[in-house]
Design a protein around this nucleic acid. Structure first.
Lengths: 120, 120
DNA sequence: ATTACTGTATTAAGCGGATAATACAGTAAT
DNA sequence: ATTACTGTATTATCCGCTTAATACAGTAAT
């Protein structure tokens, strides 16, 4: 087992992640208007430049579409959103399993532990 | 839903986490000798100062014991190790569930997805 | 045309974590 | 006592992310 290190977890990536969640949960519906850079920057209390990077990322991901002065809208392609949601879920599950293995647990252990949470 | 941001994920915290895993998995057994700061720093390819911080943390956690020139040893208290392992596992499970909820899934969804991984 | 929104770009400054380069202290073994 | 390990501390430097402060461009509404 090796050391896997990431020198940083940039704010803008975290912002992108949170916005992605808002899209896949429908908080910002497909085809709907998306808040402006400045507006979201204010809400998150970060610099507009930082929020800008996050939103550029979402655009690169195909989740947002930009009109020069209409601002941004969520993609109308529900398929892209659904695929994103699915991919993220898989990612989380895989991460959970892997992190549990790193602690010395089996996948079955991981599942069992999870169910104790659901049960009570 | 709000924005929860952490301005950084310091290397030394990541190192501490990895070392913690090595302890709870028994890779470094209870009561056994623990590698030196410089040795682990070389293995992880980080600065000794950085590794030092990580190991100080583990000592504060009660997982390591330091003798001035014997170097460090893993605690002999198997109970502490077991409790740490359990607590980490719970943490991971809770994180998984929460992250899935953030994507719009229920706990049952999370469990079902997990089982598709285990099954095949 | 003026106002008020959009997105976008630029430059400088600040900050905190990681590194680098040492140095010191303590003890076991030779 | 010298060597060779330990842990620990200090100071300066580097670097990337974030912020700050603007500025510019484009369009819709007044």
């Amino acid at each position: 087992m090796d050391f896997y290190l990431k020198n940083s977890l940039p704010i803008w990536k975290q912002l992108a992640a949170r916005l992605r969640e808002r899209i896949v949960t429908g908080e910002y519906p497909a085809g709907g208007h998306f808040p402006s850079v400045r507006e979201l920057a204010a809400e998150a209390e970060v610099n507009p430049n930082t929020m800008q990077r996050a939103m550029s990322q979402l655009e690169a991901d195909g989740l947002l579409v930009t009109s020069r002065n209409f601002g941004r809208t969520v993609t109308e392609d529900a398929e892209v959103i659904a695929a994103t949601k699915k991919a993220l879920a898989k990612e989380r599950a895989a991460e959970y399993l892997e992190s549990m293995k790193a602690l010395g647990f089996t996948a079955e252990d991981a599942d069992q532990l999870l169910r104790t949470y659901i049960g009570g």
